[in-house]
Write a protein that binds this DNA or RNA. Structure first.
Lengths: 110, 110
DNA sequence: AAATTTAATCGTAATATTGCAATCATACGA
DNA sequence: TCGTATGATTGCAATATTACGATTAAATTT
C-alpha cells in the first residue's frame, strides 16, 4: 500500500486532487507568491529567496510544472518560470462552485 | 529529511498549504463532492460510496476534519459529517486573489 | 445483559515525499 | 577551448502517506 487508488475515482476528481496536492506544500505556495510579485524568475532567484538547497527548489519547480501550475521557457543557460493562469482559473471556479453548492444547502450542519 | 521545513515559511503559507494538502487526494475530493450532494453523511455512507475500507475512510475523514474542511458531530452511535463553509471561502478568496494578481501582470510569460 | 451497529484506533506493509550533496549537461563569455 | 553560470538529475536517508485487517469503544436494539 501507500499507493493511491486513482483508478477508482473520476478523471475530474483525480485532476483536481493532483492540482491541489501540487500546491499543498509551503515551499510551493511560496514559489507561487513570489511569482505573483515578480511575474517571472529563474531557479536561482528562488534558491536565494527560499531556505532550501538548489536541488530541492528545482524539484519543487518540476512538480509545479508537471501539474501545469507554472510554465518554464529556456532563456539561454537559465530557465524562465511564470504562473500558468489557466490552472488557477480552474481552481477558483472549483471553489466558487463548492461555495455556491454549500450555500444552496438548507442548514449548515446536522 | 522527508520533513517539511515549515518553520521557515510564513504562517499564511503554511496554513494555505495545509488546507490544499488536505484536499490533495482523490478520495478526499470525492468525500467533499459527496457532501455537496447529500449535505450530511456518516462514515458508513462513504464506505459504501468509496472503493476503500472503513479504516481508510475514517482516516481520510480525520484528516479533513483536523484541517478544518469538514465538521463532525456525534449523533448517537454514528458521527454526522458536513462541510465547513469557511475553509472554502478562504480558498476561493485565495485563488481569486491569485487570478487578479496574475491578470495585473503585464505579459503572460517570458 | 447480550448482540448489533458504528466508527475510531492500532499495528503493519508498501509506497511517496522531502531534502540535500554530488554530479552531469548545457549555454555563454573570455 | 576553457572556465563559469545555471539548473536538472541521481542517489540516498529520513519521514510521511496510503491502505487495510484486527481490535476496541460506545451507543442502540433485542
Amino acid at each position: 500500500m501507500g499507493l493511491t487508488k486513482t483508478e477508482f475515482f473520476t478523471e475530474s476528481q483525480n485532476k483536481t486532487a493532483m492540482l491541489l496536492k501540487a500546491l499543498g506544500h509551503p515551499a510551493r505556495v511560496a514559489i507561487i507568491e513570489h511569482l505573483l510579485k515578480v511575474r517571472t524568475c529563474i531557479c536561482g532567484d528562488l534558491v536565494n529567496e527560499l531556505p532550501l538547497a538548489q536541488a530541492t527548489v528545482s524539484q519543487h519547480l518540476k512538480e509545479l510544472k508537471s501539474a501545469g501550475i507554472i510554465k518554464g521557457s529556456v532563456e539561454g543557460a537559465a530557465v524562465c518560470y511564470c504562473l500558468d493562469e489557466s490552472a488557477f482559473e480552474v481552481l477558483a471556479a472549483y471553489f466558487s462552485g463548492v461555495i455556491s453548492g454549500v450555500k444552496s444547502q438548507k442548514s449548515n450542519c446536522c
